[in-house]
Design a protein around this nucleic acid. Sequence first.
DNA 1: ATTTTTTTTGCGGGTTCCCGCAATGCGATC
DNA 2: GATCGCATTGCGGGAACCCGCAAAAAAAAT
Lengths: 244, 244
Amino acid sequence: MSTFLIVEDDALHRNFLREVIIQSDLECTQLIEAADGEEAIRCVHEYKPKGIVMDLQMPNKTGVQAAKAIWAENPKMPIVFWSNYDDEAYVRGITKIVPACATYGYILKTSSKDRLRRSIQCVFLEGQNVIDREIRGVQQRGQDRSEGLSEAEYEVLLDITLGLTDQAIADRRNISLRSVQGRLQQLYAKLGLIEMPLLDSGAAEYNSRTRAVAVALMSRLINGKSIEAAELEYRRMTGKEAGS
Amino acid sequence: MSTFLIVEDDALHRNFLREVIIQSDLECTQLIEAADGEEAIRCVHEYKPKGIVMDLQMPNKTGVQAAKAIWAENPKMPIVFWSNYDDEAYVRGITKIVPACATYGYILKTSSKDRLRRSIQCVFLEGQNVIDREIRGVQQRGQDRSEGLSEAEYEVLLDITLGLTDQAIADRRNISLRSVQGRLQQLYAKLGLIEMPLLDSGAAEYNSRTRAVAVALMSRLINGKSIEAAELEYRRMTGKEAGS
DNA sequence: ATTTTTTTTGCGGGTTCCCGCAATGCGATC
DNA sequence: GATCGCATTGCGGGAACCCGCAAAAAAAAT
């Protein structure tokens, strides 16, 4: 019995994916569907699929969160991410959680039907990673030492995006207040926020901290979903998980 | 010649919409498609449709920006907004630009095909506004005097989201520094950011300003698209429109 | 093991943000 | 015209943020 799993909240897109997978000659004898990340995790338990095609932006858990849970128990599960978005927030999130032994793909929804079908075949039948060219570009720019954010810089970006004070960040990351401020300064430099223009009066036009968040949002280093995930993680580590 | 216009970047959704409109008995003899807001504006000029069905979240101009431009020249054009998102950022954006004489609809993509078809018929054939119940709820909560943000509070929220300093906001809105700070204090109160918890050391855990932005993003008072629109508007008024 | 590079850190000072107190101005209502 | 409610505003002080200077510690490279 060869089962595959589709994880996609949009009904039209689910139907389209079903069609593509059927046409992919995967010897797929059972095709299961889930409409969000939590349902996906349940389906993996119950049906033990050989591969998954998954959207990234979904209600409840995102594709990244679901993949993290799935890979925690099935590190060799091949997953093809299929998304409208090439946000570095997603790219970075995936890169952080992919097990070394897993095969994965990241295909944009703007790709042709044929490219999607061939990518699915490559990942599931040949065990090769298939990353769309645009995604590859985002990965490479993110890894550049002089302009890409380091892990520490990205963490501190998420921390200020949540609204934490410098002292709160220092406590959570177990570093000094000045060290937090040093990381922030490096972050601002990489986001191009050094020597910003002044108002006619000579006062600053931009507040560096909130401007960094704005620039990161506009360049899709972070997005609404990565903020929600960061909020959940912070609440979990500070023991404030009750709804609010 | 009775022409209608579909504005939708997702090909699957465009096809679905085409089908729904054909089934709506609109006596539609020509159905034009645009894949983004800018193309939509061009099509309105060229084809002079009797009605438009438009997505909200699109590349280049959003549905709100496109509708604003279209309504500037055709204030009676009926438009049905069809979106995956009930973000207050979109609701507020639309409410701000609808001309008094226009008929419009706001339908979520999770609504049934029948509901969508009937809503389109209601707006285009009967000239009635049709707002999904969930959207209506967002509108009402937004208008509540004690918890909804006033126009001034929402403006200052967008200003801090862009990273402007208090002085820059005062200059742009022609009010005093203290007045900006007064509006910010009211904003923080409405977002529930008064008397926030402290760290064990007695220092603040959250910085009010960035926490306000985070809460607004998570509650979808603002979103990535409204930030981009606000950035464009600020650059236009400060004369810094060159790409950056 | 040594050297080099990167990161962390303390101290101090300037700027921005936040908020209380109190007064003024403006618009709406009677 | 008087009164009331709301918004604006000036002043001042405390807290948080930002950054320079300089030194120490840790990690990476040789």
